[in-house]
Design a protein around this nucleic acid. Structure first.
Length: 276
DNA sequence: ACGCCCGCCTGTAAGC
DNA sequence: TGCTTACAGGCGGGCG
């Protein structure tokens, strides 16, 4: 599922390919994808004849800045893809939005499971805050160790749910949470407030290292997942996963079989020996 | 106010 | 072999 590294990979590719180009025409057909709008036509009206001036990221959200000041906000959800296509390419099933750029190519939002969404927003205030994203917490790549310690302090929740709580830290999902916790040698069900300073340091270092490495390898694509980059290519970081979806395989640190434990219907992968 | 759980959704794969 | 069922999980909302 697309998390921070996948969204960042797509962001960089969109910025490189479409920045400075004008959206000549837009098609929006996915009612559920455009659920924040009264009708899909609202999005069409606000993006047509606008120039894309850059792509930013906030957590797992992709922000496409237009020359009107509006921002097209995209969340890939579980199965969303943003794909560059030529106008002559055949249509793809589950395409909910298509932006046709000058020069003939297009950007398609494809999402079978429709957990993702697309909407246009007008930033507010001097900082350009997007009201719909105001709930998002720290970006893991910007936050220092002190900020992470602050997010953990006094929390009664367990460590992994906190890492995945977008209001605290924005961009980490189930897959990278497990990889980060393995790197930090911490169990998913540790009480968040129980970490000592050394453990907080390890968690911070692991969070930055894992996410940075994953971006460098263009994200993770798994067999049962849908992630593809802007050009339809899979990522490579799944080849470096150490615990996620690797139950029964040897821990790369101590060779103990990786465990899988379902809690509240969600899978947790970890080394029962290395992580405490 | 916070923690926790459910339902949304469809392609894939396991199971009978 | 073919059909049914379980599973994957981010997020919003409801509940306690």
């Amino acid at each position: 599922m697309p998390e921070l590294p996948e969204v960042e990979t797509v962001r960089r590719d969109i910025d490189a390919r479409f920045r400075g180009r004008r959206i000549q025409e837009a098609e929006a057909t996915g009612v559920r994808t455009l659920r924040r709008h009264g009708s899909p036509g609202e999005l069409v009206d606000r993006v047509q004849n606008r120039e894309l001036i850059g792509a930013r990221r906030r957590g797992k959200y992709l922000l496409l800045d237009l020359d009107s000041g509006d921002v097209v906000v995209v969340h890939l959800g579980m199965s969303g893809q943003l794909l560059a296509a030529a106008a002559s390419d055949p249509p793809i099933r589950h395409t909910h939005v298509a932006l046709h750029f000058d020069g003939g190519d297009e950007l398609r939002f494809v999402d079978p499971r429709t957990f993702g969404e697309v909407f246009v927003s007008t930033p507010e205030g001097p900082a350009g805050e997007i009201a719909e994203l105001a709930h998002l917490g720290l970006d893991p790549l910007d936050a220092g160790e002190d900020a992470l310690a602050g997010a953990l302090a006094g929390r009664t929740t367990k460590l992994k749910p906190l890492l995945m709580d977008q209001r605290r830290i924005a961009g980490i999902g189930n897959m990278y949470a497990d990889e980060i916790l393995f790197a930090a040698q911490l169990r998913f069900d540790r009480a968040a407030a129980s970490l000592n300073p050394r453990e907080i340091g390890a968690l911070h270092r692991s969070m930055v290292d894992v996410l940075t490495e994953a971006i460098a390898h263009r994200g993770s694509s798994l067999a049962d997942e849908q992630y593809r980059d802007l050009y339809g290519q899979v990522g490579r970081y799944q080849l470096r996963h150490r615990v996620y979806a690797r139950q029964g395989q040897p821990c790369p640190r101590c060779a103990t079989p990786v465990a899988r434990l379902k809690v509240a219907g969600r899978s947790n992968f970890f080394c029962p020996k290395c992580q405490a």
